[in-house]
Amino acid sequence: MRFMIIVKATADSEAGKMPSRELLTEMGKYNEQLINAGVLLAGEGLHPSARGARVKFEGSKRTVVDGPFAETKELIAGFWLIQVKSKEEAIEWVRRCPNPFECDSEIEIRQVFEMEDFGDAATPELCAQEERMRAQLAQA
């Protein structure tokens, strides 16, 4: 099972405040633990929303809105993508994580859809296409 571990933004992260050397060191150790356990697939921090954009979809119309975005509690400051056996195991990994901002913060855990989750809508052709794309990504 794959899980996206979503680090929620804070006022400091949105202001562009960089983490301390100590926090970077602790995060590096944590990431090494994830790698050594064979569960880390990807993980990155994100720049503040002021440097981002959103694309709003209304029918066939697309509207681009530049950041910053107001609702800090709804923004993402970073993520990990991990592969573990259960939600409980994902929770245990997150419980070991250093506090990402050295202040009150929140991390959300969300399971990633797999093709089998889509039932009959996941035709053999779509499943084969998914496998081809994953193989291409693995080679990149």
Rank of each mutant, 00 (worst) to 15 (best):
R54G: 09
Q136F: 13
N31G: 05
R21S: 04
S13V: 04
G28T: 05
I76N: 06
V7T: 13
E44V: 00
A42N: 10
E114Y: 12
E114K: 14
E116D: 14
M133P: 00
D12S: 06
A9L: 02
R21H: 01
D117P: 10
A138V: 10
C103V: 00
W93H: 06
A53G: 07
R95L: 07
F113R: 04
A15Y: 04
F118G: 12
M1K: 11
N31S: 04
W93G: 04
D120C: 05
A53K: 13
E106V: 02
G16D: 12
I82Y: 14
R2P: 07
L34A: 06
R62C: 14
C103M: 01
V65Q: 13
L137K: 10
M133L: 09
D104P: 00
A77P: 10
R110K: 13
I91Y: 07
E71V: 14
R134T: 13
F57D: 01
E108R: 14
E32C: 01
P48F: 02
L23T: 05
E44A: 00
F79C: 09
K29R: 10
P19R: 08
E22I: 01
L41R: 15
D66A: 15
G67D: 09
F79S: 04
P100R: 03
L24I: 11
G16H: 13
A70T: 14
F118T: 11
A42L: 10
F3A: 04
D117C: 08
G43Q: 06
Q139H: 12
L40N: 03
R96A: 06
S86N: 14
P100Q: 05
S13W: 12
R134Y: 13
I107W: 13
D104R: 03
E32L: 07
Q136T: 02
F3C: 09
V39P: 10
V84F: 02
A9K: 03
T63N: 02
V84N: 06
E58H: 13
D117Q: 09
I109G: 11
T10C: 08
L46E: 09
K17Q: 11
C97T: 08
P124D: 12
K17H: 07
R54V: 11
E32H: 09
L23E: 02
V7R: 07
A50T: 09
E89S: 03
S105R: 12
E58N: 11
F69I: 13
A138H: 08
P19V: 12
Q139C: 08
G38A: 01
G78Y: 15
V112S: 05
I6W: 08
R134V: 12
K61V: 05
Q129F: 09
E89L: 04
K29M: 06
E58Y: 01
L24N: 11
L40S: 03
V64F: 12
V84E: 05
L137A: 09
A140D: 06
E14M: 04
T123E: 05
C127Y: 00
E106T: 05
I6T: 10
E106G: 00
F118W: 15
E102A: 07
I6Y: 10
G59H: 02
D66R: 08
Q139L: 15
K85P: 02
R54S: 15
N99L: 12
C127V: 15
L23M: 01
